Simulated scan of single mutants.
Amino acid sequence: MKWGANGPLRSRLHMQSGYQLGTYLFLGLIIFDLLLGDVPRISFAMYALFFYFWQRERVEKEDKALAEKMKQRSNEWTITLVILLCFVGYAVSLGLQEPSISLLELSIYGFSTIFCIRALTLIYAMHQEHLD
């Protein structure tokens, strides 16, 4: 048996534990930011990215056909929820006189929210497939 024979398995295990560690680390930073009274912009964005990649890695461990089915269902739910959030944001913005948040912060929160929604819909799709 050669030393490098299980290299891909080892790197896959390290990546999954890295995604989990990153998710928990940035969740802790979000809580720390909130306790200090700051608004967690970058911590939330990094948490969303790590959370999404962790859930995507979990889905890709399934059978290829099943994983594609779960990703497709997640795509449909994500698009539906994003469109619903856009309508809610539009309705809320009608009552605003002046924007109190910069465009950069709004885009960071928007993309972070999309990644979190995507990760949550992947979790829900995995749950639904395992129930069926």
Rank of each mutant, 00 (worst) to 15 (best):
I101W: 07
Q128H: 08
I31L: 03
T113L: 13
M1A: 01
R10F: 00
L94C: 02
P8I: 13
L104V: 15
A91N: 08
E129V: 00
V92M: 11
L120F: 08
N6H: 14
W3D: 13
I108M: 11
L35A: 10
Y47A: 01
K71P: 06
W54D: 09
Y52K: 13
R41T: 14
D33G: 02
S17W: 06
F115D: 06
D33T: 00
R73Q: 13
F115V: 02
G22W: 09
V88R: 09
L84R: 01
L34C: 02
R118N: 02
L9E: 13
Y124V: 07
K64N: 09
Y90V: 11
N6I: 12
V59Q: 10
Q55V: 05
R58P: 05
T80V: 11
T113D: 09
K71L: 14
T113N: 02
L9T: 06
H14E: 10
L9R: 03
H127Y: 15
L9G: 07
E57P: 08
G37M: 00
P8Q: 04
Y124S: 08
M70R: 06
T113Y: 04
L131E: 04
I114V: 15
G28N: 03
R58E: 15
W54E: 13
G4N: 15
L81H: 05
V39D: 09
D38K: 04
L120D: 09
I114L: 15
A91P: 07
Y109Q: 01
A48P: 00
Y124F: 00
T23A: 05
W54P: 02
K64W: 04
F87A: 05
M1Y: 02
F32I: 01
F111A: 03
V88H: 03
S112T: 01
W54N: 03
G22D: 04
